[in-house]
Write a protein that binds this DNA or RNA. Structure first.
Length: 182
DNA sequence: TAACTAGCTTCTTATATAACAATGCATG
DNA sequence: CATGCATTGTTATATAAGAAGCTAGTTA
């Protein structure tokens, strides 16, 4: 079973923000230090996803645990702006999920050296001295999988859960084929 | 020299290794 | 009380994506 651990989304409010002013209006929940980074960080409350707001009106949300939470945070962010009377054309906001980081687990531990050959050396990267996981870039799915010797897997880069789920199912099938052959 | 492009910064999150720092506890 | 070893903790490594802005390098 695939579990989303981090969902990233972005939107555009088609309104320019004076971040200095906006961060003052939002209080301690907002953090803005243009010397360090051009975006303003906003957290609706502790342990909630981080919203990074830009001068141009674009923003990103990171750290959500589901697509639903992503939309919920976005809705509450727009409500907060209107409550604080911060001008923003929230009506024509285009919001989209950009990346889902998921975890999954294979039934067995894996020999990563053998798996790199089995999946194809041109689609895999495995340098245990650099990083303990095998990096697998499937041809048919828009995501990258990190496979570990314990059997744990991280699927990242997919914008929808179906792609991540199918990519993992495909990996399971390929491994099954490989173990059947040898 | 001006314009453009590419790469880096920040942040989030799981995963697992090594290398290191810092602390805890026991033995001489 | 000091030294040694063990454990815990932090950092780095790598992956993806969005964003703005800076720098470095290339090209016309």
């Amino acid at each position: 079973m695939i579990q989303i651990v981090n969902a990233v989304g972005s939107g555009s409010l088609a309104t320019e923000f004076d971040l200095e002013q906006v961060s003052r209006a939002l209080g301690p929940a907002a953090e803005y230090d243009p010397e360090k980074y051009p975006g303003m960080y906003l957290r609706l409350s502790d342990d909630e996803p981080l919203i990074t707001v830009y001068r141009t009106g674009k923003y990103i949300i990171t750290g959500a645990e589901s697509e639903a939470e992503l939309h919920s945070v976005r809705d509450r962010f727009l409500t907060l702006l209107s409550d604080e009377q911060i001008p923003a054309s929230t009506t024509d906001d285009d919001f989209a999920v950009q990346n889902l980081v998921c975890t999954a687990e294979l039934d067995d531990g894996q020999n990563l050296n053998a798996l790199a050959i089995g999946l194809g050396l041109e689609r895999t990267e495995y340098e245990p001295e650099q990083f303990p996981g095998l990096i697998y870039r499937p041809v048919d799915y828009p995501c990258v999988l990190l496979i570990f010797a314990t059997g744990k897997v991280v699927i990242t880069g997919a914008a929808d859960l179906e792609d991540a789920t199918e990519a993992f199912a495909d990996l399971e099938n390929r491994i099954e084929q490989l173990t059947g052959e040898t």
